[in-house]
């Protein structure tokens, strides 16, 4: 694809703006700003990635992954507002999800730890782990509110907190995993994922693209599960005080 063809494809945005104007959707400005931002951001990322890939330095790559995780942990941690140590927990959960899956992929020689592979793959892992941790937090907060009585009755029978909250913990992990599981089921039927589409457009053999996509599906299943598990098993503690009572 030449730059000229890419430029011409902007006419499609103009078409959208015309429709917006005629139908009074008042989206012209958003469309314009949106497309300019997309161009600027992607171009910037493209150059940054090009630079990073050229470095091919172990520590540099690791530092970038850390920045990625810190950002994701911060965002997921905010979902857990009110839960003790939510930012620390989400950091730990995402790091675990990332190291287990990335480590496994490298050990299996599916990818290697060079920036052009480790960074995009980690981006997907961290992004999905972040969503999963956020879902765990939200689910725990909601079930501790809705099912407080159940937990208290179990506590009163002499259940330790983890046992009393067991079904809530389980539900939060399940809630976090379900989107990924559902996505796996519909892969290739309902959706051709972005990664595969990109590879195919760039001229890759569809069979190769599929191989990568399968790897991505498996790795996300693993990452999401590990992150959700770790997050829930630390986060539930924040709902109890040292007397094993539910804190309100």
């Amino acid at each position: 694809m030449s730059n000229w063809s890419l430029f011409l494809s902007f006419s499609l945005v103009i078409l959208a703006m015309l429709v917006s104007k005629k139908e009074k959707l008042f989206l012209e400005k958003d469309l314009l700003v949106g497309s300019i931002r997309a161009v600027v951001q992607l171009v910037a990322v493209g150059y940054i990635l090009k630079f990073i890939f050229a470095q091919n330095n172990f520590w540099f790559t690791t530092a970038l992954l850390l920045v990625m995780v810190l950002n994701a942990a911060y965002i997921a941690g905010k979902r857990g507002e009110g839960i003790k140590n939510s930012h620390l927990i989400s950091f730990g959960a995402i790091v675990m999800g990332l190291s287990v899956t990335l480590g496994a992929l490298i050990a299996f020689r599916a990818i290697s730890y060079k920036p052009s592979q480790a960074i995009p793959v980690s981006g997907m892992i961290v992004g999905n782990a972040m969503v999963a941790v956020g879902l765990v937090f939200r689910s725990l907060k909601q079930t501790f509110r809705d099912r407080r009585e159940e937990v208290e009755v179990k506590l009163s029978l002499g259940a330790p907190p983890r046992e009393a909250a067991f079904s809530l913990i389980r539900e939060s992990i399940k809630t976090a995993m379900l989107p990924t599981v559902d996505q796996m089921k519909t892969l290739g039927i309902v959706q051709l994922p972005g990664m595969m589409t990109g590879l195919i457009l760039a001229g890759a053999n569809p069979l190769l693209a599929i191989k990568y996509q399968i790897m991505v599906a498996f790795m996300l299943a693993g990452a999401v599960t590990v992150a959700a598990y770790v997050a829930s098993y630390f986060a539930y503690r924040g709902f109890f005080n040292e007397d094993f009572q539910i804190v309100s």
């Binding site: 009163s156 029978l157 002499g158 094993f244």
Partner: peptide
């Protein structure tokens, strides 16, 4: 220990 105590002093809600 709260767990032991609650097993000693049982509460029927």
């Amino acid at each position: 220990d709260p767990v032991k105590l609650r097993r000693e002093i049982g509460y029927v809600w």
